[in-house]
Design a binder for these strands. Structure first.
Length: 415
RNA sequence: GGGAGUGUAGCGAAGUCUGGCUAAACGCGACGGACUGUAACUCCGUUCCUUCGGGUUCGUAGGUUCGAAUCCUACCGCUCCCA
């Protein structure tokens, strides 16, 4: 299977500008492909992983992976279909760039990877140069027809965001020039921005210039919901924001109906391996071999082998249910990735403890959960709101292990 | 600048004409429980706070009234139309 065939099989291809041209370029020379990310937060989340998976496959197929951590475009903001974005401060941008750069480096390694900041060229561009060298090449008429812009004409769009597609076009051309980047990869919403760049390259370098675009279908789960949220929260790639354990669990809990799709998309397993796992889902769904393998593979890719081992260890400890017998050091090891809070060694009413520890948002809610039998302290179910927790009783007086519901754990660290 | 709308709990959306029965229908989401495969589906419960007496809410600030999400005034935000 060639690069494109593989993507098709994996359900990772929405549109390509020129399939045969691209394959030809890939076999004739070593070309680069790029994915742009704006540093809107200090970490990437699973949504970002979607184009990166395709870029990684491109790299594995022998190409050079180029990633823009968009300092300059991040300062402007890619228009959303609905509302204007809030501008980020310079300090935020720099902070966010740092975090994202580190993560991207992990995912792509040092070989055959370039991470660039478009501030290097866009930041130097003066307004008059911008208007003379690039502005002339963009037709307002064409820009207005791009989907995102068109949808915003009703509700309004600032000149700043309107200009975004020009900046992204300049990026593509700049990378085309200095990094041999011939392909831009993005989500299906990026099609307009990508073709802007291709048009610009053709204007500046002639129509023979090789430049391609590829978009990825919108990722949804079997119920039609946007992929990548767990309990309404984004799943981050930063281990501090989403622990490797939670990350692993996210994948482990995927539906039977989705797991094959995700194996294809988010792992580098071969077609044979994935088909075998898909068969397991059909014949032996209760074992959840496919989900387990999915969780292992993606966690390994994002957090590394050690994190997989740790997540599995922790999962085992949590779901065996019997945590009362564990030692303090075992608790420290196993529950390292679980949300924690600080507390004192004083005895405390259960309801107060839950609220102060951030396990519950209000006393009302805390009482409700206690009464429903949803709260377990150190492996023992607590059903009375008058229950008093004595921190010195378990784990050498160092920890209080709180469980809410069937699988949410919180670790109280006694100061 | 002129005109017409609109602002209700995390979100969507009733209620406003005909003031009290409204801490505010309903849907979604979220949370908990049962079932189960750490699943899906389904079912049940909860969803402003509380010392469980009560307290504070319907863009903001005033006013009318025994009583206002509901009536009046001003202000702010958003949308649309005209200029």
């Amino acid at each position: 299977m060639n690069f494109i065939e593989d993507l098709k099989w994996r359900g990772a291809l929405n549109q390509v500008t020129d399939e045969t041209g691209l394959l030809e370029a890939m076999s004739n020379e070593k070309i680069g492909a790029y994915v742009g990310t704006d540093p809107t937060a200090d970490s990437l989340h699973l949504g970002h992983l979607i184009p990166f998976m395709v870029l990684k496959r491109f790299q594995n197929a022998g190409g050079k992976a180029v990633i823009i951590v968009g300092g300059a475009t991040g300062a402007i903001g890619d228009p959303r279909p609905t509302t204007e974005r809030k501008l980020l401060t310079q300090e935020q941008l720099i902070e966010n760039e740092k975090g994202i750069t580190a993560q991207v480096t992990r995912l792509f390694g040092d070989n055959n990877t370039r991470i660039v900041n478009n501030n290097d060229w866009l930041g130097k561009l003066t307004l008059t140069d911008f208007l003379r060298d690039y502005g002339k090449l963009f037709s307002i008429n064409v820009m207005l027809k791009k989907d995102v812009v068109a949808s915003r004409l009703e509700t309004g769009i600032s000149f700043t965001e309107f200009t975004y597609q020009v900046l992204q076009g300049i990026d593509f051309h700049e990378l085309w020039r200095r990094e041999d980047v011939k392909l831009q990869i993005g989500g299906s919403d990026q099609w307009g921005n990508i073709t802007s760049g291709i048009d610009l390259i053709h204007s500046l370098e002639g129509n023979e210039a090789k430049a391609f675009g590829l978009t990825i279908p919108l990722m949804t789960d079997s119920t039609g919901k946007k992929f990548g949220k767990s309990e309404g929260n984004a799943i981050w790639l930063d281990a501090k924001k989403t622990s490797p354990y939670t990350f692993y669990q996210f994948w482990l809990n995927q539906n039977d109906a989705d797991v094959e799709k995700y194996l294809k998309y988010f792992t580098f397993l071969s077609a044979e391996e994935i088909e075998a796992l898909a068969k397991e889902v059909e014949t032996n769904p209760g074992e959840r071999l496919a989900q387990r393998r999915l969780a292992q593979e993606v966690t390994k890719f994002v957090h590394g082998e050690d994190a997989v081992a740790e997540a599995e260890l922790l999962s085992k400890a949590l779901f065996s249910g019997d945590v009362a017998k564990l030692s303090a050091s075992q608790i420290a090891d196993a529950f390292d990735g679980v949300p924690s809070f600080d507390c004192t060694s004083e005895v405390k009413n259960i309801v107060d403890l839950l609220v102060e520890g951030g396990v519950e948002t209000s006393k009302r809610q805390a009482r409700e959960d206690v009464t429903n039998g949803a709260i377990t302290i150190n492996g023992e179910k607590v059903t009375s709101t008058d229950f008093v927790v004595d921190p010195s009783k378990n784990y050498d007086g160092q920890y209080i292990l709180v469980r809410r519901g069937k699988k949410k754990y919180f670790l109280g660290k006694i100061q």
